[in-house]
Design a protein around this nucleic acid. Structure first.
Length: 275
DNA sequence: CACCAGACCTGTCCGC
DNA sequence: TGCGGACAGGTCTGGT
């Protein structure tokens, strides 16, 4: 489900409800999703701890505790992290329930159970490869036109697959990549190295644009995604490319198409984005 | 290094 | 109504 804008939305609406709160206990309903340490140790590391701060790195959410442990979530396709005030109805597909002071809960739910969860001491965090190797994020000071130019130079990988590589640009996923390529008039099958300076500058601008608009709209809800309070996002109403196959292009009216690139469904306008 | 298929899972939708 | 297949916001592994 979730890409950078969705994770950032979750972080922003969980933070005021969680920071300063005490984790009284944790119920593990599906231990398979805890990747480190083993479940008993996992529970021991987080119970009785106070939540200090919520951080996000790419699509990872890090909940920092007062013992230096970071409770780390990657939601993959259908993970949800939801704050449930005392008395709220039960979450479907709950996999971990963390009980907070005062009877409120932080619930991790996940239909497809692909999400991954860790409780890492500071010196263990780099063992999560995807996190340690995260590339610069859109909207950050490290993400510049020159950076993008340097990593794309000479690359034969198709631009769609290239932008999905988290070690190149952190936080992009299938929806926002299709959107950025559409707005830039770049066909998803082009190789990264074939993209000229003007197009590359446009692409850079549009990556930042789609990410910032996604955050502004509280994320994109197609099916499972909900924010930290269980609410849907609204960016699905403002998409140009994703899931618009068979519909007229919002710019030129041509019927949009869907192909597969690197195994992922890819939506584009055959007239605005020529190969 | 580039690229693909398969794996990990469950739910939904579509065609027959 | 039932059943099989394709597909879904992500990432990792192993093969060519």
């Amino acid at each position: 489900m979730p890409e950078l804008p969705e994770l950032e939305t979750i972080r922003r609406n969980l933070a005021p409800n969680l920071e300063g709160r005490l984790i009284m206990s944790a119920d593990i309903l599906l231990s398979r999703q805890i990747k480190w340490p083993e479940p008993g140790q996992f529970v021991a590391r987080i119970t009785g701890r106070t939540i200090e701060k919520l951080d996000r790195v790419g699509k990872y959410l890090l909940i920092r505790l007062d013992n230096g442990t970071a409770l780390i979530f990657h939601l993959r396709m259908t993970g949800q992290l939801c704050y449930r005030p005392k008395g709220a109805e039960e979450a479907k597909h709950a996999r971990i329930i963390m009980r907070l002071d005062g009877g409120d809960q932080l619930v991790y739910a996940d239909t497809r159970t692909l999400g991954t969860i860790y409780a890492m001491k500071e010196d263990e965090i780099d063992n999560i490869k995807g996190l340690a190797e995260m590339g610069p994020e859109p909207l950050s000071s490290e993400f510049t036109v020159d950076y993008l130019k340097s990593v794309m130079a000479g690359k034969k990988t198709r631009i769609k697959s290239f932008l999905l590589d988290q070690s190149k640009v952190g936080g992009l996923g299938n929806i926002y990549v299709d959107e950025a390529l559409f707005l830039s008039g770049i066909h998803p099958m082009r190789t990264a190295g074939s993209i000229g300076n003007d197009e590359l500058t446009l692409l850079y601008t549009n990556i930042n644009r789609v990410i910032s608009e996604g955050i502004r709209d509280g994320g994109t809800t197609f099916r499972d995604y909900r924010n930290g309070n269980g609410e849907k996002g609204s960016h699905q109403d403002n998409l140009f490319a994703y899931a618009r196959d068979g519909k007229p292009c919002r710019v030129c009216g041509t019927i949009m198409e869907k192909i597969r690139v690197g195994g992922r469904g890819t939506h584009f306008c055959p007239s605005c984005q020529v190969l």
